[in-house]
């Protein structure tokens, strides 16, 4: 009898524990579904509380080339401005710090070099728009205005961003600027130290070093024009503000 009682109590404890685990697991994945599913009235309403639970550890995003696939060639150029003395400021040419890595990427498909992802992620950060605002048609049109079409391709030419001066702060928000500054800084140290014609060790705080990133897009050839050999892919470029990157 004692043995039966003990077995029953163990079974009851296991049943209760199993139910608790099942409920916890169900709640967990319910929160994940609400967080990761396409935008809808329920997920919008629960967004704040669900994000607080999901994002620290269980962040996930399964859009994966959807609904709109990635479709443009993208790259980033870098140039710097040096003040060598009180009267002269020297500006270097732009140097491409991403395209050379494309061939490396294509050569190692299974375990690729992760460098190129930085460019893609930075562009994604710049172009990120809140999906709820997009759905509500509260969409700013500043992006298009801030790009400049360059038809005679000279990526080192000057591009005027004056027309979007008002909205530049909206695009290059403080976090984006900080990200770009970090990227430019690392680019000078690790990818293109030759942009600076002085050794990094010789730089000190008396030499003003500012960097500017030029983001280059090539629009895709529309599907309907895929057979038109004359269709050119003009680059679209956007310059960041000058970013102070000292001290190195």
């Amino acid at each position: 009898m004692q043995s039966e009682k003990r077995t029953d109590s163990i079974s009851a404890a296991r049943l209760i524990s199993s139910c608790l685990v099942l409920v916890a697991l169900s709640l967990h994945f319910f929160a994940i579904v609400l967080y990761a599913m396409p935008i809808n009235p329920v997920s919008v309403r629960a967004q704040n509380s669900v994000s607080r639970y999901v994002e620290p550890i269980f962040y996930q995003n399964w859009r994966l080339f959807a609904p709109e696939p990635v479709d443009s060639e993208r790259g980033i150029l870098l140039r710097v401005r040096l003040r060598r003395d009180r009267h002269s400021i020297e500006t270097t040419d732009f140097i491409d710090i991403t395209s050379p890595k494309i061939s490396d990427l294509q050569a190692t498909r299974f375990f690729p070099n992760l460098r190129y992802r930085i460019v893609a992620s930075m562009l994604a950060a710049i172009h990120y728009r809140d999906p709820v605002r997009l759905r509500l048609q509260d969409l700013d049109e500043y992006t298009a205005e801030c790009y400049s079409h360059v038809e005679n391709i000279d990526l080192n030419g000057e591009v005027s961003n004056e027309e979007c001066a008002v909205d530049a702060d909206a695009i290059f928000t403080p976090p984006i600027r900080e990200l770009m500054r970090s990227f430019a800084y690392a680019g000078l140290r690790h990818i293109a130290p030759e942009v600076l014609d002085v050794a990094l060790s010789e730089l000190d705080t008396t030499v003003l070093v500012e960097a500017q990133l030029r983001i280059v897009h090539s629009e895709p050839v529309p599907f309907s024009r895929r057979n038109e050999t004359s269709h050119a892919r003009y680059p679209i470029i956007m310059d960041s503000p000058w970013l102070q990157i000292l001290p190195l």
């Binding site: 990635v70 479709d71 443009s72 060639e73 993208r74 494309i102 294509q106 895709p220 599907f223």
Partner: peptide, 10 residues
Amino acid sequence: ALYYIFQALE
């Protein structure tokens, strides 16, 4: 979709 994705060099 794949037509556009394949245009991106990456």
